[in-house]
C-alpha cells in the first residue's frame, strides 16, 4: 500500500468519529476542560445536551462516565493522556472491574507532543492500561484510522483506552483503505521478507520512511501499523516471526510496558525471534519540537534503520 498524501492528527479523527456516531442517542461525551484539545469540542457544539462538562476533575469524570454506562449510555470521555493517568485507579476499580463499557481517550500522548515539556508527555499510558483485565488499548497513527477505529468502539463490548497524538503526521490511509481496519487486527502497510517493523502511533510514518531507506540498501521490511496494543494480534506476530530474520518495534512510549514489551512478552512464549525496541528509554522528555525530541530520544527513522540493520548482521 502506498502512503496517501496529506496528513492529520489522530486527535482530529477522534473528534470526527464522535460526530459520526451522533445518530446513536446512547452516545454521550464527557470533557475535563480540554475538549478543544482532544477535539470533543465539535460534538459539544453540535450536541450540547449530550456533552457533560466536568471541569478539571478527571477522577470524577471517569466515574460519572461509569455511572452513565451503567444506565445504558455509551460514554466517550477524553482529556490529555497524562491526565487520564490521575484516574488510573478509577478506571481499574470503577470501570473495568465491574465491566462497564466506558471509552476513554487520552490525547497529546508521547514526547511528540513537543514544547509543553515532560509534564504533558505521557510515556507510560499504554503500559498502564494494558495491565487492566478486559481493557482494549489502541494507538492509531493518523486521523482517518483514529476516526475509523473510534467509530468501531460503538459496538465494542469492552471498556477501552485510545491514545491520540497532538501533532499531524503523514496519512497512512485514505477514506477507503481505513475502512479495512479492525480493532485487534494489525494492519500491514508494506511487505518484505527480511525484517518486520511493528509500530504504532506517530512512529508508523517513521517506520515507513525507514523501510524505504532499507529497501534502497537491499533490505526489504514488512511494516505493521499495530494500532491495537491490546488485544495484541499475536497471530500476525507469529507469521512475521516465522518469515523474517527479526522484529523491530517502534513506539513513542517507554520501552517498558508498551508495544515493544507486549511483543516481547508474546515471542518469549512462542519460540523467540530476535527483537529490537525503538522507543523512550526510561527517561523523561523536555520542551522541544517533535523532531528535536525524536532525535534526542533515538526515535527517528534512522534509529529504526539502525535497529533493523543490527538484526540483519
Amino acid at each position: 500500500m502506498s502512503a496517501p498524501s496529506g496528513g492529520g492528527a489522530s486527535r482530529d479523527g477522534y473528534g470526527s468519529a464522535l460526530l459520526r456516531m451522533s445518530d446513536d442517542s446512547r452516545v454521550v461525551v464527557l470533557e475535563a476542560d480540554l475538549g478543544k484539545s482532544t477535539k470533543s469540542c465539535h460534538f459539544r457544539e453540535a450536541y450540547p445536551d449530550r456533552t457533560i462538562s466536568l471541569g478539571i476533575a478527571e477522577q470524577n469524570m471517569i466515574l460519572v462516565a461509569s455511572g452513565m454506562a451503567s444506565s445504558g449510555k455509551i460514554p466517550f470521555a477524553s482529556t490529555f493522556a497524562i491526565f487520564t493517568e490521575r484516574g488510573f485507579e478509577q478506571v481499574r476499580n470503577g470501570v473495568a472491574r465491574p465491566g462497564l463499557v466506558v471509552h476513554l481517550c487520552g490525547s497529546h500522548g508521547g514526547v511528540h507532543t513537543g514544547t509543553d515539556g515532560s509534564s504533558a508527555q505521557s510515556i507510560e499510558d499504554l503500559a498502564l492500561y494494558r495491565t487492566i483485565p478486559g481493557m482494549t488499548v489502541m494507538h492509531p497513527c493518523d486521523d482517518l484510522s483514529a476516526e475509523e477505529l473510534t467509530v468501531q468502539l460503538l459496538n465494542h463490548e469492552n471498556p477501552s483506552y485510545t491514545r491520540t497524538a497532538r501533532n499531524k503526521t503523514p496519512r497512512m490511509y485514505d477514506q477507503e483503505t481505513s475502512k479495512n481496519l479492525r480493532i485487534g487486527k494489525g494492519s500491514i502497510l508494506r511487505n518484505g521478507d527480511d525484517v518486520a517493523i511493528i509500530s504504532c502511533g506517530v512512529m508508523v510514518s517513521e517506520s515507513m520512511k525507514a523501510a524505504d531507506y532499507l529497501s534502497s540498501n537491499g533490505i526489504e521490511a514488512t511494516v505493521v501499523d499495530m494500532h491495537t496494543i491490546k488485544p495484541l494480534d499475536t497471530g500476525m506476530i507469529d507469521e512475521l516471526a516465522s518469515k523474517c530474520k527479526g522484529i523491530v518495534t517502534a513506539e513513542d512510549h517507554s520501552v517498558i510496558g508498551g508495544l515493544g514489551a507486549a511483543v516481547a512478552e508474546h515471542i518469549s512464549y512462542s519460540g523467540g525471534v530476535p527483537l529490537r525496541m525503538v522507543g523512550v528509554s526510561d527517561r523523561f522528555g523536555e520542551s522541544g519540537t517533535p523532531q528535536e525530541l525524536m532525535e534526542i530520544m533515538g526515535m527517528t527513522y534512522m534509529d529504526i534503520v539502525s535497529s533493523c540493520e543490527s538484526l540483519m548482521s
Partner: peptide, 10 residues
Amino acid sequence: SFGLGCALAA
C-alpha cells in the same frame, strides 16, 4: 461520582 452519572443519564 457514579451516582451523578446515573442521575445525568436518568
